[in-house]
Amino acid sequence: MNNEAFKQLVDAHYAPLYRFALSLARNASDAGDLVQQTFFIWATKGHGLRELSKAKSWLFTTLYREFLRGRRRDARSSSLEDLPAGERDPSAEDVDRVSRIDAATVMAALQTVDETFRAPLTLFYIEDMSYQEIADALEVPIGTVMSRLSRGKAQLRTALERAEAPGSKVLPFPGAKGAQAS
């Protein structure tokens, strides 16, 4: 891949990859590192990918693998599956709430969702990925994706409700519109 083609690949995917990384890593510095590492791997190994149409999926899969690898290394894994479903149907108030609050708060709420549910949820929201594409990117079965989307959305609604509650403290993240400069 020549330099210009690589730039086009970066321009097409680095922003959504950063958002995905930010939701996983939960801080801007680590998110930036993950995105850089992903493109670095592409530059050193990804040339072998014959179908450029699969580049997007490859990049998200690689970023997710790098995130998991780093997390294992840091021995910070938590119990991922043993969480209450928190099933609750969306109300009209839930929809209004999202419209009221800023992007930084929505991202902060997303970051409180358990990682198992957060990864597919982020791909669903940020990249408009289908359940099949998410299953491919995260290398999990389709049924698992559907289950995690359903439970993740319920957790996110609860997190957004808490974020707006009086006295709640949601830290803005750098790079998000609406974030306050410190």
């Binding site: 690589f6 730039k7 970066v10 321009d11 680095y14 922003a15 950063y18 958002r19 930010l22 801007a28 930036g32 995105v35 850089q36 493109f39 670095f40 592409w42 530059a43 149907d89 969306p90 109300s91 009209a92 839930d94 929809v95 999202v98 419209s99 609050i101 800023d102 992007a103 930084a104 929505v106 991202m107 997303l110 982020t122 669903f124 929201y125 940020i126 408009d128 959305k153 996110l156 609604r157 993240f173 750098p174 790079g175 998000a176 519109k177 609406g178």
Partner: peptide, 30 residues
């Protein structure tokens, strides 16, 4: 309601911008 909620969340999340300089750093590293 579910679709309206999903649309609103997706719209907000897409407003999050990468930090300045990240694109240049990626290209320089490559």
């Amino acid at each position: 309601r579910s679709r309206a909620h999903d649309s609103a969340v997706a719209r907000k999340l897409r407003e999050v911008a990468p930090p300045a300089g990240l694109r240049e750093a990626i290209i320089a590293g490559a």
